[in-house]
Nucleic acid binder design. Structure first.
Lengths: 166, 166
DNA sequence: CAGACTTAAATAGATAGCTATCTATCGTCA
DNA sequence: TGACGATAGATAGCTATCTATTTAAGTCTG
């Protein structure tokens, strides 16, 4: 009931809200994309490709899309099968492949943009630009902390390995 | 480059950020919970049970946890198998079951609270209480919109069914 | 009160994410 | 230059989620 306990409540709820909203968001987008055979996960990849300022390797694409390599591989397999993207070998490095939108993907992307726009219009109905900016600023701060974890995770592992080794 | 386009960019990014953060959050919690065999999804159920003000049926629990029925069923199956919860039949309605924490669950819950607290402390390091409150306020506005969707989805279906029917 | 909706939980099958591991290639340095 | 560690992508298998459907029980109505 006191103020400090309220702020604790906010902290307690935050992660749970994050998960709930993300799931509801995905569900709504998926529902509206269903006529296009696409899902949110697949659309995000196309979107990232369409807004990239240079050819992306799978590794780079995974990073900007915020997923792990194996997750991307499966999504790309599907998109490639449907003829929406293609993988090209990189001459300098035969391990790597760059990913490219096909011509077929372009019109689909435009249609889909409009659908997603529709979701956003309804979802953000009560939210001002300013509130959204503030929220996004918090997201970015939190994102940086997670990145810091990722960076230090290796160190932590090393320590454990160091201790564990005979 | 102009301000309006910046705000569009915020709107474009929001959903993607939401998904990324939710996944990173879950991954970090799961990593720290791994010594306890629990995962975030399972912990959330225990947490909701521990903070409920009355006995919850599966349907009610699914609602407050923000997941669909079938998702909850599988989580409950696991938790029940591990002896952390039990399902009890409701005398008045033989279709329904209420869900209860067992004694075994209580100490585990306390330990886990501390772990989750640790995640929060690091993740929110750069975020003030006020920022967090604002963010949560936006979450709730957005959540209401999704609820409105869910409510109107039935109507929408009815309309479609109505049109489709001979 | 009998049949027709409705509702609670369970089941089936799909998608998307993860970690761990494998294979092929690249780079480095003894 | 040849062996070893690092890197890019692919594969396998697990968890969590969803929608659609099934089963059983409750409710309503002619």
């Amino acid at each position: 009931m006191t103020n400090p306990s309220d702020s604790n409540a906010s902290r307690e709820q935050f992660g749970i809200w994050l998960g709930m909203l993300a799931r509801q968001w995905r569900a709504e987008v998926d529902r509206r994309l269903s006529p296009f055979i696409l899902t949110e996960a697949r659309w995000i990849i196309l979107f990232r490709l369409s807004t990239a300022d240079h050819d992306l390797t799978q590794k780079e694409l995974a990073r900007v899309a915020g997923v792990q390599g194996p997750t991307l591989v499966r999504t790309l397999d599907w998109l490639e099968e449907k003829g929406l993207i293609e993988r090209r070998e990189v001459p300098d490095d035969r391990r790597a492949k760059t990913v490219h939108l096909t011509e077929r993907a372009e019109p689909a992307l435009r249609q889909i943009q409009a659908v997603i726009q529709g979701v956003r219009a309804q979802i953000f109905a009560d939210v001002s630009d300013e509130e959204l900016e503030q929220c996004l600023a918090v997201f970015k701060k939190i994102g940086r902390q997670f990145d810091a974890f990722a960076g230090s995770a290796e160190d932590r592992d090393m320590v454990i390995v160091g201790q564990g080794k005979k």
